[in-house]
Amino acid sequence: MINSGIKKHSFLKWEWMLILMLILINIMNASLSPYYLNYFNISSAVMAFLDKAFMVFPMAFIMMMGDIDISVASTVALSSVIMGIAVQAGLPMPLAIVLCLGTATLCGWINGMIITRFKELSAAIVTISTMILYRGIAYIILEDQAASGFPEWFSFLGWESIGPIPFIVIVFTVFAVLFWLILHKTIWGRRILAIGQNNTASIYSGINVDKIRLMAFTSAGFMAGISSLFLTSKMASTRPNIAVGYELEVIAIVVLGGVSTSGGRGKIHNVIMAVFVIGLLKYGLGLINIHSQLLSIIIGILLILSTLLPNLGEDYLKKKKLRSNT
């Protein structure tokens, strides 16, 4: 009874907090730059940070199940490098893209297989290993070289628009809707949340937990492949050291988006809001020439506060309840 009260309370607050943050950041940005509220500027701001945002969806699923995937950024690098050498070797671009997505999906699938076959190992340790391994393979392939020579049209992905809307925004929206529907409207989403809430009870309820975990990690690989496509397209070349540290930013966004770090709770629309909170914050600070490093301090503090505050609130309510009982 008390438990439910607390959770509902803080959860409601969380959605409002994200909305409030978004409003504040927009006001801040608008006051910093008179040109901010111009469509072109906003859309270029959005384009600037969406490339890594694809990975937040599967990461949200994975963290809702109480797991974590630290290898996603290395997957981006490896799949991008594979695409790069494929093009350099003269393969047609569409085939290279398929290779890129295939490699990324395979990386995710391997993570999922190891994690479900060796349940004694935590997802953290497995994906830390594959993080080092996947990027290591990228280094073996390209050493300190860069691969380029992508066809002209490939830059369309990262830079162009369809009508007034940037292509990346369209793709992001499609995935956002897709993942929202999966989590909130399908039986798979319900099962993901069930696993996160109580893995054992889920097994006893006949849910194929291994299959769902495997799917989640595989989809994390696939979405890393999508990120890889957009990132490579933007840079028009690739190196083994691209996307270093992206995994942590992705995890930070998911946590800021209110996904319970112990699993079982979370909403995709909050995660999407968190993407925009971080992205627009970054953009705004860029407007006033503040280096991205300051942003990392803000992300760090947000990350800590976004889990600390609910905990403290819960403690407070518990104490209050206890006092009123005696």
Binding site: Q293, L294, S296, I297, G300, L302, L303, I304, T307, N311
Partner: peptide
């Protein structure tokens, strides 16, 4: 302190600290 008294997951608390300190180093 964050992990014991604040009941934060270690991975989250230290990830946040990592960001804060890396940014502060730059500052």
């Amino acid at each position: 302190l964050l992990i014991s008294k604040g009941r934060l997951l270690p991975i989250i608390a230290t990830l946040g600290m990592m960001y804060v300190l890396r940014g502060s180093t730059f500052l």
